[in-house]
């Protein structure tokens, strides 16, 4: 079980959180991109054996949306920040 260090509530277990998917770059203007870049932004998340940034919602705590930097193999959490 992950122990997520919420900036407002302190260390809380993963069961208090909902997962919100990979933290994407801000939505670009599709008209300013090539088709390939647009499809890439929509459908291709980073999938490394390593660090990913992802969104977690402290649904059963303070309700804040957090961004985590987490390792996909060790599940170590290097950073938790409020917002994006």
């Amino acid at each position: 079980m992950l122990l997520i260090d919420c900036p407002f509530c302190g260390k809380r277990t993963e069961s208090e959180f909902a997962y919100g998917g990979p933290a994407l770059a801000p939505r670009p203007d599709p008209a300013a991109l090539t088709d390939a870049e647009w499809v890439d932004w929509l459908t291709v998340p980073p999938n490394p054996l390593g660090w990913v940034e992802e969104r977690w919602w402290h649904a059963r705590g303070c309700g804040a949306w957090l961004t985590l930097r987490r390792h996909t193999v060790t599940h170590e959490i290097a950073e938790v920040r409020h917002g994006r």
Partner: peptide, 17 residues
């Protein structure tokens, strides 16, 4: 498991749930 994972063990939280 919530989130991406390359592990092959199971999480205590998912197991308990």
């Amino acid at each position: 498991d919530l989130g991406q994972s390359f592990r092959r063990d199971i999480k205590q939280g998912v197991f308990e749930h």
